[in-house]
Design a protein around this nucleic acid. Sequence first.
DNA 1: AATGAATGAGGCTTCATTCAT
DNA 2: TATGAATGAAGCCTCATTCAT
Lengths: 208, 208, 208, 208
Amino acid sequence: MLKKLTEEQRNMILTCAIEEFGEQGYGRAKITSIARSAGLSAGVIYKYYEDKEALFNACLEHCMDYLEDVYTRLGSTTIGLEDGLERLVELAVIASREHPEYFRLYHQITLTQNSEEAVKLSSRIEGSSSKLYVSFLEDGVRAGLVREDMDPKFFALLFDDILMMINFSLSSKYYEERMRLYLGHDPSDAELKEQILKFVRGAFGMGE
Amino acid sequence: MLKKLTEEQRNMILTCAIEEFGEQGYGRAKITSIARSAGLSAGVIYKYYEDKEALFNACLEHCMDYLEDVYTRLGSTTIGLEDGLERLVELAVIASREHPEYFRLYHQITLTQNSEEAVKLSSRIEGSSSKLYVSFLEDGVRAGLVREDMDPKFFALLFDDILMMINFSLSSKYYEERMRLYLGHDPSDAELKEQILKFVRGAFGMGE
Amino acid sequence: MLKKLTEEQRNMILTCAIEEFGEQGYGRAKITSIARSAGLSAGVIYKYYEDKEALFNACLEHCMDYLEDVYTRLGSTTIGLEDGLERLVELAVIASREHPEYFRLYHQITLTQNSEEAVKLSSRIEGSSSKLYVSFLEDGVRAGLVREDMDPKFFALLFDDILMMINFSLSSKYYEERMRLYLGHDPSDAELKEQILKFVRGAFGMGE
Amino acid sequence: MLKKLTEEQRNMILTCAIEEFGEQGYGRAKITSIARSAGLSAGVIYKYYEDKEALFNACLEHCMDYLEDVYTRLGSTTIGLEDGLERLVELAVIASREHPEYFRLYHQITLTQNSEEAVKLSSRIEGSSSKLYVSFLEDGVRAGLVREDMDPKFFALLFDDILMMINFSLSSKYYEERMRLYLGHDPSDAELKEQILKFVRGAFGMGE
DNA sequence: AATGAATGAGGCTTCATTCAT
DNA sequence: TATGAATGAAGCCTCATTCAT
């Protein structure tokens, strides 16, 4: 003990904090719990973060960075609607599997009713994905790839709704259980992807 | 002041508690706050509820009752797929408008990672709606009203995903803002219903 | 326990806080210590005072009220210089005996280097006594009762210096010990008064 | 960085500690603050001082040494009452101007109610000055230079009271403000000396 | 031998819960 | 029986002190 924190330990703080905040919510999360999980003393957290709120915001920031990264990577590639759709669903599944705890935290902020900070940070991620989806669909309409009577904005929203529910279904015990209830079993990633695509393609009016 | 609580006052406790828990989350919610909102003393709450947790569970129970009621009412009616679909979307919108606070609370429990209680309660509500949706679609397949290559269970789940997101979008500030971001405006109930139905019918392969 | 605080208990908080702050200084004083001395729980203090600082300020206020009261009572009486002098010295001794803890607290704030609050409160008490003393001496000069070559303002200050040192000498262990060191014994109140008056009358040039 | 502390750096610790303790009081003073002011690390302080208390005591010791030095130097000179008086007042002013921080710290210990250490240390300084002043006055009485009806011990105490208040008035914000309140302006050193001497000479019954 | 970050005891403060009225 | 103030456990945070570098 009393050794300088390694890079790994610093990351550990954030990792454990994301886990704790995501599971307990801000109010129930305990700084001491986070420190214990990270194998550190409570005091050291205050060397890196002003206070509990600042730590929480850093967690958000970290998750947002990740999400933004995931979707930005996709957006930058020139890619057709068909492939894009598939890739997006795939990404939603992969990301949820890789970092379910990020989505748990994300889930938390969606029900914060008053944090300026949360709203600001999140509009960042929603902003970029919304533009991406809408333009995908608008292009699709122009190219005659999707039904032309759709409202691209609205359909983009509903498509994102589906993606969000995938995220939650793969990261929260509640939604996991719910999925099991519907399906009667735990779906494989391939199954998930296949069915979702089938559903969405149908919605978008994309021929089989 | 020393009169027994009226029925109305008892309901007030629950109403205010649902509001508080839904807005603040369990950890940040304060018993005294709830009591004050209800125009009662903090002490009296403990006459009716063992502790904070018990009050929270009672709130859940109350919301579940409501949700169950909404969907049960629909399920009991013999109704066709086409009308059923429309009615369900309509119900999702109406219920969200009528009791957004119930959905905020519902939203809260979906991210509780460890409460046995929560899982139990929720499997109740999800259980009944899942059966309803699945049988709707199975009937539809049999009747040739929907694409026959769908997995009714999976599609039922995705349909419910959409409904849940409607609930959240109409009850949480975060999702409200997100919807505004996508659409550029606040949609009317009619618009909501129309677009969602168009999306879902497409997904189900129901001819226009 | 759990009985509503009596008037006496409320006063007890202030009394014990004045004692603690006066003995330990703000930084070392502990809320829990104060509560324990008062026979109360720590929490209840926060029902009456915003925080530690507010409690401290209330203590100051209380002491200032007392001091102001003591000197105001004197100032309001029409009284000659000779009698006034005697009365003031007497008051300094009596007040110090009656509430040494007030003077200990007073002593504390005189070395606070940065509290706006402290400076404001104290200018109150110093302001009224300074006016009183100066006018006493100015009247004395006009009436030829004291040496006419004095600067009344300066001599008033030095007179108040003496009074303050009496206060401290009778309320602080340190000054008490110092007095014993000088005198070789603990002086009676009468002796104190007599010697101080002799000293001051000499300084003012008042014939025996 | 890993060189042994220079003499100058060691003094710096003490200097900065005296400043901090004098301004903040023991309880609010921070070791890290002191270290930062001294341009050193917090850790090194513990190489030279057992703990915070020990550092505080060393500060006291340092101040006492200085004060003792000032008065001892005077006491060792053979000097008459008249000149001695003037010199003492002068010294009080000069010392206060030179090291106001020492007097701030000194002021701090006078209200410590329980430190054996403090009492012991201080009895040292008070002891030497008290002997000096008393013998001055006793000589004066014998020589017929001062009123013979005075109690030299008592008058010595009151004289020292005046000197202490000068020290405080020139080193503490509170007393500075108080002086300004009385006088309406900031006195020059010459004015201070002149008025105090006039006051004291009068008290001692020394002909003009 | 000094550094400066980590430790962790302990103080301030909040709020779920109790209970005298 | 409801009240609402008091209790006190427990969480946040600070800072004296330690120790790996």
